[in-house]
Computed example of a mutant assay.
Amino acid sequence: MLGWIPKAVDSLADRLVFKGWKNDNFNLSQIFQMNNPDIFFDSAIISALIGGCSFVYMGLDKEDFPRLKVIDGRDATGIIDPVTNLLTEGYAVLERDPKTDVPVLEAYFLPDTTTYIRKGGDPETFLNPAGIPLLVPIIYRPDAKRPMGHSRISRASMSLLQGACRTVKRSEVSAEFYSFPQKYIIGLSQEEDEAFEKWKATMSTFLTITKDEEGDSPTVGQFTQQNMTPFTEQLRTFAALFAGENGLTLDDLGFVSDNPSSAEAIKASHESLRLTARKAQRTFGSCFLNVGMVSACLRDNKAYRRQQFYLTEPMWEPIFEPDAAALSSIGDGAIKLNQAVPGYFNTDNLPDLTGIDPSQLPAPVTEDANG
């Protein structure tokens, strides 16, 4: 009704931009580049934020190259190994009837085999060379009690949203009385009251009431008009509580402040969101590495060990893009650190702070005073 829940999810999902792999010894970048990474990563992340867990199904295309498909949490499940965050067995609905939403194609995943079950047909079983079920979970904020993760949409957020919706409904009802305030007339006789047209009196811009036989005239008045301010303040209170629960600000929820904030002020006000995003990057990075590892096993038709991928690290874009002032501060800091420790900052680690890749053009040649 208010759009706060999608805002809470999108505000985090939009800041989690996967950049690539460092020390990519098994050429995982090729696998993801061939599977539409602009949509794949965003789809997997936002589904995991909503449901707490999404899944990536792996298969082979006609050219025997790994094909990745994101499956929402409502269409897949499995038994998870809490140490590796990989499944020991899994089940997924791969295809549904678009009209009836009934499953048409299902799959059961085991470490050595994958069984496909089509509606009205016989099950088909294929060997799995990876040695790991071809269904990998993408998990948001797992813990020992809930290894399948937590949803970004917390119970507190839902309760606060329901309170805000009730406030909006009350304000809608009160707005009718605010637009048409109640009026009253004192002193009408019973005969005059029966002949009095209330709707005409309400909508008319000019009302005439004559005196009675004794020369007395009725008294016309109006009740105190409804005040909308309490509803606005109550809605703002719910917005503040919702923003605090999700690491947002009132500006994010539509309550615009008078003075525009600078980039540093926005970053400072979203400190809780930044910490949440950092945590999500660590978890999602490990899950995407699992996807790459299983895909590499499927591509090379070889069961690699997970320890062989320990050098490969995921890279992410900066959570907050720096503005011109921030870039200047980063440059000054990099110069001072390089003076103290030569080579501390270079083109390999500076993009992690600036979010800007180094230029591929050769550096300009400068001449000294002697030519």
Rank of each mutant, 00 (worst) to 15 (best):
A8R: 02
A8V: 04
D10Q: 15
F26H: 14
F32M: 00
I50A: 10
C53S: 11
F65Q: 13
R74N: 10
D75R: 09
T77P: 01
I79R: 15
T84R: 09
E89G: 02
R96W: 04
T100W: 01
P111I: 00
P129I: 03
P129G: 04
G131V: 06
G131K: 10
I139W: 02
P142K: 07
H150M: 01
R152I: 00
A156N: 12
K169N: 10
K183Y: 02
K183H: 10
I185Q: 12
Q190M: 08
E197K: 12
K198F: 06
K198N: 11
M203C: 11
S204E: 15
L207T: 09
E214K: 06
Q222D: 05
L241K: 11
G247E: 00
F255N: 15
F255T: 13
S257K: 13
E264L: 03
S272G: 11
L275Q: 09
T276E: 13
G285D: 03
C287K: 12
C287P: 06
V294Y: 05
R299N: 15
R306W: 07
Q307V: 12
L311W: 07
M315A: 09
P318V: 01
S328F: 06
S329D: 13
D332M: 11
D332I: 09
I335E: 04
K336R: 15
G343Q: 12
D348C: 07
P351F: 00
S359Y: 06
Q360E: 14
P362Y: 03
N370W: 07
